[in-house]
Amino acid sequence: MTKSFAVSRSTDTVLDVRNATKRFGPVLALDNVSIQAHRGQVLALLGDNGAGKSTLIKCISGVHQIDSGMIQLDGKPTLMRSPGSAREAGIETVYQDLALFDNLTPAQNFYAGREISFPSWLPPGLRFMRRSEMESVTNDVLERLKVTLPGAGATVALMSGGQRQAVAVARASVFARKLVILDEPTAALGLRESRKVLDLIAQLRDEGNAVILITHNMEHVTELASLAVVLRQGRKVGELIPTKANQHDLISMIVGG
């Protein structure tokens, strides 16, 4: 099995999770799960509630650590000790609660916890911020991703669910050098706002990012993903290229029919 992986690993494989296993006490949350994410492609991660999707992405993004198995980034085994170390390694995760600060502007949100600052010999908290630089980068990114927001300098508190989601995804796109993970990015959005976020994900993909997308929406899977992986009770139960024709196969894999 390991050999076949070695052969199939192409140069654009960004993330390679092999035989990941994770236990929480007596519960086997992940059982020998292997997935790969490729540059410029969206990998859909499917499964019912409690199937292990969240555990898997939390292991990849450093919130949890796998008990056994291996995570490789660009072919190098990498330990994700903390969310910080995963971010440093180039993995950005957009969680369902978005981790946005309502009282801050998009630019302040983009750089929260990693402000561009000087002088470097001071401890980070005591440094001075380069505010105009942070603002211009943010504005450029929002413009490039065609995100429309209420007036410049407005705080996130004034934004709709879709706009907030767009800010969170755009933030991830700035800092992700290797992989963006999106956890149900359209779950709370109406049709029109979902459309915007889907376009944004497509753009991230086209710009060369590897994307892992968790969703319950099969339409979104067939539209965006080049590969869908289905988890059930902590195990990988299926993997296929999603098309309109095999949506039912996907759903029956998810529910275990």
Partner: peptide, 11 residues
Amino acid sequence: GKPEAALQMGI
């Protein structure tokens, strides 16, 4: 603004 998010962002 959001203590949980501040932790997540490494503050």
